[in-house]
Design a protein around this nucleic acid. Structure first.
Lengths: 349, 349
DNA sequence: CTGAAAGCGCTTACAG
DNA sequence: CTGAAAGCGCTTACAG
């Protein structure tokens, strides 16, 4: 069944069928009805390849999830408590707009080619790039070819520096504000010995959270103890090892600011094993607000990253850019929120 | 840049460029090299729409994840510990075969149309359907139109009864064997009072696990106590409520066979809150082997469902069917495995 | 081994 | 308001 068949059955030309399908204005109501009836009767849907070849959009966006060197690792990205809801939200929002999503995993440097290839082959109209690695070179390449896309968790200055022109939307959360709120909260509870379990510093959010932690401590005249400066890389296992190492030192911090929930949960496991009570002996805070954080005991106090809203914005922005070929690099910071639960305690007794 | 441009630059015809791209045999090595050089130099990739319109495959499969009425629910499918790794594995295996994956969420009855539509529009060559709902009518429809696809967790008899012909591959795990092994294990530990926290019975695996539990108990002459026959629907919250209700009765089972890990974890939370010790006061077993089950304390004894292998098989089978238009309904049962950890104890003191 | 030409199923100026 | 025709960028018999 093709548009020509519909045309014959409805007694019109293919042009008219096309006009009806595309909802053009210059078709009298009667003709439209007549054609629609046949279309519905045969459940006709135009061949997407023919449409695209004739100049229409693919109505498809590519979602590229970067996670270099984690293949074979248990930390696969779709099981990741942070990325899974994001992927979910992207597909959900895209589908709600009648847009299809082509999902691609990028597990090695070579896989980056998939991004440009999908664009060149005209499989997609736009893209969303998210992940654990920040390849500015790839971003610059895609941008220079004029393809529109949204990127999540990238430093705006870095992009502006590296990319002269292109159609990019940079979506972040206000991690600096979130970190500041959290440290302020700990200080208000009386904590002065605040350690950090840092994330990956080659990540924008990892860097921001780390730097803001340092800044706020300094502003309050609190010193930063090197023994409490843990490098957890955002990974459960690494985080656990760092916490175990910290336990070798005489003095522990009274609070540990973890740069994501996964590491916070992992730290809590270690403390439990070592009979260190949370929050009585040490207060723990997370970042992201992943689901398990609310199940765990004590429930995790954390900073909520608005993942769903970020996915929504990412989609909204790609769709906008797809409809507008002018070069424009925009950026948005979506609001984080302090979620106080049970994992922190006042030091005042 | 199109194939015609490449042809001109290489001094050949479009036909020859096409032959090189498609790796046909009848091109002398010299010509091939000459053409390839230009192709690589300009990073040329053929327009996929043109290729498909001219008769080639889309090299894309649709992944349809069914989760009716869970929209807005916290149990979104991509955060689901069972589906996430499956989606991951599908994309991974597809990409490894040079196949793209179009991911679609089906959250309402209307969304089912997406499946047939994607096929009719020729966006995909084949599909994989997985999810919490089992719509045999939809399966029959898609099959009757001749589109090839794999389905996960469906009753083979039901399909054969409903679908006369088509190109379907049904992928299951040996849940009956898995359930039997688990109940046998509990019995070998001395348990005779074994309760069940059942999953959704409109699901194939939910039904099999439930029925096998009943059969094995009967075979051993053990009675099935209605007070211990809990209906958890595979959902954390429902499971917790059912366990709480069970606690009203005088006598508790000495072991609780949970039909998935999520419910087992949820039950463990309830028991902990109620000061009922696992495994000392009650043994708990799960099903699926999701990641958190190994983190939890005590670590969960469970039946491993080979999700990755199932995804791999699903891909393998669709690709096979895409290359072969003959009608064929096949089915595969991939092996489960008993994973003994810490959540069960012998009743012999 | 290779090219000219037809054809895939749409959309879109163009002409009326 | 509507149809005939060209064109999108490939592939594939066909002929040589």
């Amino acid at each position: 069944m093709k548009s020509e068949d519909i045309a014959k059955l409805a007694g019109v030309s293919r042009s008219t069928v096309s006009r009806v399908i595309n909802n053009y204005g210059n078709v009298p109501e009667n003709t439209r009805k007549k054609v629609m009836k046949v279309i519905e009767q045969y459940n006709f849907h135009p061949n997407i390849s023919a449409r695209v070849l004739a100049g229409k959009k693919t109505d498809t966006i590519g979602l590229f999830i970067v996670s270099i060197a984690e293949k074979g690792n248990v930390n696969r990205i779709y099981r990741n408590n942070y990325f899974s809801p994001f992927i979910d939200a992207v597909i959900d929002n895209a589908n709600a707009n009648g847009i299809y999503v082509l999902v691609n995993s990028i597990y090695s440097e070579n896989d980056y080619d998939k991004i440009i290839q999908a664009f060149i082959e005209k499989r997609i109209d736009g893209g969303i790039i998210v992940g654990t690695e920040k390849e500015l070179g790839v971003i610059a390449d895609v941008a220079s070819m004029g393809y529109p896309f949204s990127i999540i968790d990238y430093c705006v200055e870095d992009i502006l520096h590296k990319v002269k022109k292109g159609r990019i939307s940079i979506i972040n959360s206000t991690d600096s504000v979130g970190t500041r709120n959290m440290i302020d909260y700990l200080i208000s509870l009386g904590h002065r010995d605040i350690g950090i379990l840092a994330g990956r510093l080659n990540t924008y959010s990892g860097r921001i959270r780390y730097e803001t932690y340092q800044n706020v401590l300094k502003e309050h005249g609190l010193n930063i103890n090197e023994n409490w400066n843990l490098k957890g890389e955002f990974i459960r296992k690494t985080a656990a090892q760092e916490v175990i190492n910290m336990l070798q030192h005489d003095k522990l911090p009274t609070a540990l600011f973890c740069c994501n929930d996964d590491m916070a949960l992992s730290a809590m496991d270690v403390f439990e094993k070592e009979k260190i009570r949370v929050p009585h002996d040490i207060s723990i805070t997370g970042f992201d607000d992943i689901l398990p954080g609310s199940f765990v005991k004590p429930a995790l106090t954390t900073v909520r990253v608005p993942l769903y809203a970020m996915a929504q914005k990412a989609i909204e922005e790609v769709l906008k850019m797809i409809g507008d070929t002018s070069n424009n690099i925009s950026s948005y910071d979506l609001k984080t929120e302090l979620i106080v639960r049970e994992s922190c305690m006042t030091t005042k007794t």
